[in-house]
Design a protein around this nucleic acid. Sequence first.
DNA 1: AATGTAGGTTCTGATTCGCAACTTATATTG
DNA 2: CAATATAAGTTGCGAATCAGAACCTACATT
Lengths: 152, 152
Amino acid sequence: MGKLREMLDADCGLPAALEVMGERWSFLILRAAFNGLSHFEEFLSGLGIARKILSNRLAKLVEHGILERTPQADDRRRVAYTLTPKGLDLLPAMLALRQWGVKYGLGVQSDLVLVDCRDHRPIAPIGIHAHDGRPIAYADLKWLYRTDVGEP
Amino acid sequence: MGKLREMLDADCGLPAALEVMGERWSFLILRAAFNGLSHFEEFLSGLGIARKILSNRLAKLVEHGILERTPQADDRRRVAYTLTPKGLDLLPAMLALRQWGVKYGLGVQSDLVLVDCRDHRPIAPIGIHAHDGRPIAYADLKWLYRTDVGEP
DNA sequence: AATGTAGGTTCTGATTCGCAACTTATATTG
DNA sequence: CAATATAAGTTGCGAATCAGAACCTACATT
């Protein structure tokens, strides 16, 4: 029980991730950004979000370094919100959620498929892999203390 | 622009996933379940969540088929909440978020590492792979209509 | 029978959400 | 140049949600 408790208390990274991305709309804004949207009014009409909330979320995403805010040079009314490397690194998490939603969701199936542009074939389901790339199932996982891991 | 709009409108599975998992605490409850917790009071003290919210979230997770609620036979006061296959399928998404949080979070790094129990080496970062398992970068992805994908 | 425990529900205030209207800085148009 | 339009916010306000505490109920233990 002590160990269990310790595992929970350990800041496993999830609370940090959820601090930003756990808020309503954050993931949908991120998806829109991945889809190429970058302006306030694009997000607004594309997502059906309230202006106030969009303003708040964009500010937080910028504050956390997930989006970058750059006023446009040629039209200084416009501001472009673009994904930073930190934001781009959320793609696996977003796709994993998305694939889960497609697998179990009741929603209408999209006609668009994410493919490898090289061979135009759909990407593999996001999954768990060993250090050598071999897929692993949940049953084959366990928690170890850092000092007990095999040699890297 | 029409195509962009269409991509956003398409129910890509993310909204469905977020309907349940987008709510506060849902992911942390899920993590606790993956860590072996199964009883109300365990979640309660393990997470520091309010009773009311925990009650509400557990009900929703059960309602959406992510957890299963089973009153215990030997002590019928106790109720076990356990992950269904649908819930277990959220592991990649949770790990992807967790790894992102570890990579960029400010939180204290956990001493516990998730390993392949066969060789005791840490799992690979969750990533995007082509149908044949080859890793792909964001730049190599694109959206295609289902009718345009390469032969499976 | 009395007490304790697991799992909730109810009551209260503080936050957050969402809609609509207003503001400010820049562009465009007559 | 004046008038109007547009992009990106901010403000105000009612509705929903959150969090903490106390309360409740079914069961189990002494």
